[in-house]
Nucleic acid binder design. Structure first.
Lengths: 143, 143
DNA sequence: CTAGGAGTTAGAGGCGACTCGAAGTCAACC
DNA sequence: GGTTGACTTCGAGTCGCCTCTAACTCCTAG
C-alpha cells in the first residue's frame, strides 16, 4: 500500500506482480530459491526489489516447464557464487531445454492419438453411426 | 512364461508389453481404470487379453499427456455404459486435447526464454566475456 | 517333494510442490 | 486507543500417482 518508492515491494505486492501466493513466496525463500537472502524491515517484514520480481518471473517460466525447485535452487546457488560458474549454469539450462523439447515431442505424439479419437467420434456422431464404436474395442486401442 | 496362447496374458507379460509395473497394473485395476472387470484364473490370478493391452497403451498416452486417472476412469466408465455416451466421451477427449494444446504452447513459450538464456551464455562463454553476466541481474530477468 | 519365483492381498510410505491454519506481531487509519 | 488487516513463524495437511512391504499362496521344474 501507500505507493512505496518504486524499488521496495512488500510480499503482497510481489504476490500481485508474479501471481505467486504469499505462502509460496515464503516457501521459496525457505527453499533458498532467491539469489540473495531476502532483506527485512526493522520489523522483520520481507522487502523485495524489482530484480527479485524479475528473477521470480524467470522462476515461474522454469517451473511451468517442469524444472524442479531443486534445479532452480542449484541455478540460484551458481549465480550467487558469481563468476566461474557460467559453464555449469549453461549445462543446467541446456539439460532442461532438452527435457522440455522431449516433452513437447511426447505431448505432440499424444495429441495425435487424441485427435484421431476425437475425429473418429465426430465422424460417427455426425453420421449417426456412433453405435458402431460402442465397445470401442479395436477403435479404442489402435485408432 | 510357458508361451501362453496368444490371447491370455499374465500380469507379468502385460507389464513387459506396456512398461507399467505389476504394482501399477494392480493399482489401476483397483482404481477401476479397466473397461471390463479383470478376469481371474481359478487360482485368483489376473488374466489379461490383447484388447486390454491396447487400452493400456491408450491409457499411457493419456497419462503421458497429463490426463488425471480420474478422467481416464470416467472415460472407461462411459465406454462400459455402452451406446449413448459417445458425446460425453467426445467432450472428455476434446477437453483434454485443449489442455494439452495449451500446455504445448506454454512449454514453447518457456523454451523461448530458456533458449535465449542458453545462447546468451554460449556467446559470452565463447567470447570469454562471461564475467559480464556474473550477477545475472537484468540478463537474468529480461533476456 | 521341495525350492524358487511369480502371483495374491491390504495397507503404509514417499515425493514434489504447495496450501493452509494457528497463534501471534505490528503498522496505519479513524 | 482500538480495530483492521497484512505480516510473521512453524508445522501439519493435501493431492496425485505411484511404490514398496509384509505375509501369504500357488504353480512348475528339477
Amino acid at each position: 500500500m501507500t505507493t512505496a518508492s518504486s524499488t521496495t515491494l512488500t510480499i503482497g505486492e510481489v504476490s500481485a506482480l508474479t501471481g505467486l501466493s504469499t505462502h509460496t513466496l515464503r516457501f521459496y525463500e525457505q527453499e533458498h530459491l532467491f539469489v540473495e537472502p531476502v532483506r527485512r524491515t526493522s520489523a522483520g517484514r520481507r522487502v523485495f526489489t524489482d530484480s527479485e520480481v524479475g528473477w521470480l518471473r524467470v522462476c515461474t517460466k522454469l517451473r511451468s516447464s517442469g524444472m524442479p525447485l531443486a534445479d532452480i535452487r542449484r541455478y540460484a546457488d551458481l549465480v550467487r557464487q558469481g563468476p566461474g560458474t557460467e559453464a555449469a549454469r549453461l549445462d543446467l539450462l541446456r539439460g532442461h531445454e532438452a527435457r522440455v523439447t522431449r516433452q513437447v515431442e511426447e505431448l505432440n505424439e499424444a495429441l495425435d492419438v487424441i485427435k484421431a479419437k476425437v475425429s473418429l467420434y465426430e465422424e460417427h456422431l455426425a453420421a449417426g453411426t456412433a453405435d458402431a464404436l460402442w465397445r470401442d474395442g479395436p477403435a479404442c486401442s489402435s485408432a
